Simulated assay, not measured.
Amino acid sequence: MTWWEVLVEPWQFEFMQRALLVTVLAGVVAAVLSCWLVLIGWSLMGDAVSHAVLPGVVLSYLVGAPFAVGALVFGLGAVGLIGAVRETTRLKEDTAIGVVFTTAFAVGVVLVSTTPSQVDLSHILFGNVLGVSDADIVQVVVLAAVALAVLVARRRDITLYAFDRVHAHVVGLPVRRIGAMLLLLLALAVVVALQAVGVVLAVAMLITPGATAFLLTDRIERMLVVAPLVATVCAVAGIWTSYLLDAASAGLVVVFQGLAFAVAYVVARRRERVR
């Protein structure tokens, strides 16, 4: 078998094409949002939301509702609860996040372990990108399109919010609304990533591409190009490698993102030494 045949063989199968489509869409949405999450310092918030959606997904299954509904409700609920704990106690934000997301995730794990199901609910934890249905693809495409459209349309306002909230307020931007919009988009991105890599690995897609781009450039415009490009390349490499090794697709996608970050780190360090 030639190298060309090795490269193209996986993409001849429909389930591989579906997996690539879903993973690329999830990766691009998460990567674009991750640029601002890194700048604002909300990486831990992404971790919290990605884990807090688990009970909502399981409960949605129990009542026969779309997974996205439960995930979105619990994701936004977790954000609201974190804010309430932070504002009504002396606890700092990171402590409130840690308590809320670990508790919600634990509740989800208990529900997964006790819910009788013909569907393997462990796929919620670790993803099942090779088994996505037509309904899953439609859901991912719609949610990804909505999230990307909003992010692109409001990118200037979000960027100003990320760098200087005080100045954003002075020039008349609705700071609280922008913050709420970002949290809603974060929940949407988690729902999209859930279809590809599951709850556990979704947080990597929401942090690593943006962190990688941040090491390679100091301009937000370039970050918004580099991050989704990294996510796309890692999606292709991860899905292709999973076919050859018969290994977990979601895990390999995230592994390649980690390798991309390592390369960016080395490049950034060498550039600093040269300077």
Rank of each mutant, 00 (worst) to 15 (best):
L39D: 13
L148V: 04
L121A: 00
W3A: 14
L160P: 07
V6F: 14
A168S: 11
I207A: 13
A48T: 03
A202L: 02
L7Y: 07
L121R: 00
T103K: 03
A213E: 03
F105I: 00
L33P: 00
P10C: 04
A52C: 03
E87I: 11
V170A: 11
L7I: 13
F74N: 05
V132S: 07
Y265E: 12
P10H: 03
L182T: 00
N128M: 01
Q17C: 08
M223Q: 13
W42S: 07
D218H: 15
L91S: 08
A19I: 06
R270V: 15
R154L: 15
S122I: 11
L111V: 07
H51M: 05
V57Q: 04
S122N: 15
V69D: 01
E87Y: 10
T208K: 06
V171A: 01
A260H: 06
A264R: 06
I40N: 00
D134F: 07
A196V: 00
Y161P: 03
S122T: 15
M16P: 09
A106H: 11
H167K: 13
A84M: 14
W4P: 00
H123F: 13
G108M: 05
G46N: 01
R273V: 15
A204E: 06
A187K: 07
G251Y: 07
G98K: 03
G75L: 01
L111E: 06
H169K: 13
R269F: 12
Q17M: 10
S34H: 05
A68N: 07
L244W: 15
M1N: 11
V73E: 00
Y161H: 11
D134Y: 08
A31N: 06
V85P: 03
P66A: 00
V200R: 04
Q257E: 15
L173P: 08
D218C: 08
T114G: 10
A162K: 09
V49H: 04
I178V: 14
R154P: 02
L91I: 09
V175A: 00
L194Q: 10
T89I: 01
R90W: 12
L245T: 14
A135I: 10
